[in-house]
Amino acid sequence: MREMIQTRSQAQLLRSAALLVVIVLGLALRRFGYAADLPFVVVKYGGSALWGAMVYLLVALIFAKSRPAGIAVIALLLAISVELFRLYHTPWLDAFRLTTAGALLLGRIFSPWNMLAYAIGIAAACAFDPGRRAVITAGR
């Protein structure tokens, strides 16, 4: 039992570290991607894929005992909900979306392609989830 608890806490620590790395990579890609002459598609949708991976890791930290597939489904539903929320407009919400925090958290313009990028990022995060082994081992 103690080994399982230790493995879970190690998994959560690894997930937290992965989350930090994904956030830094996403911010760096959006900030320096064009300056590094990366194509628009890489900067735009690479950032969206990293955002999807971030959502997966956040959900994984909250629902630590859940299976990776369940975490992925919750993360995808959450990411799609945020994308669909971009279709809703009020003056105060649009003003928030014009800020850096608003653009990073909620985005500005609805794009169905973002949902595909989120799904790719979530699938990649699920495949490489550092907590996968701990959750699957604990489930046996």
Rank of each mutant, 00 (worst) to 15 (best):
M1S: 11
E3T: 10
T7W: 09
A11N: 09
Q12S: 12
R15W: 08
R15Q: 15
A18G: 13
L19R: 00
V21Y: 13
V22E: 11
I23R: 04
L25I: 00
L25T: 01
L27K: 05
R30L: 11
R30G: 06
R31Y: 05
F32H: 13
F32S: 02
G33K: 05
Y34W: 08
A35Q: 12
A35E: 04
A35F: 10
D37V: 06
V41R: 09
V43R: 01
Y45H: 15
G46A: 08
G47F: 11
S48Y: 02
S48G: 08
W51S: 03
M54T: 02
Y56L: 02
L57A: 08
V59S: 02
A60N: 01
A60V: 10
A60T: 03
K65Y: 13
R67I: 01
P68T: 12
I71N: 01
I71E: 01
V73N: 02
I74F: 10
A75M: 09
I80S: 07
S81F: 14
V82T: 09
V82L: 12
E83C: 01
R86Q: 13
R86E: 05
Y88C: 01
W92Y: 07
L93G: 06
D94Q: 11
R97Q: 04
L98P: 00
L98Y: 07
L98E: 13
T99M: 08
T100M: 09
T100H: 06
A101K: 04
L104C: 06
G107I: 14
I109C: 00
I109Y: 08
F110Y: 14
S111H: 06
S111F: 11
P112N: 15
N114P: 01
N114V: 07
M115V: 12
A117S: 11
Y118I: 09
Y118T: 00
G121P: 03
I122G: 01
A124T: 05
A125T: 08
A125L: 08
A127T: 12
P130K: 04
G131K: 09
R133S: 13
A138P: 01
A138R: 14
G139N: 06
R140K: 13
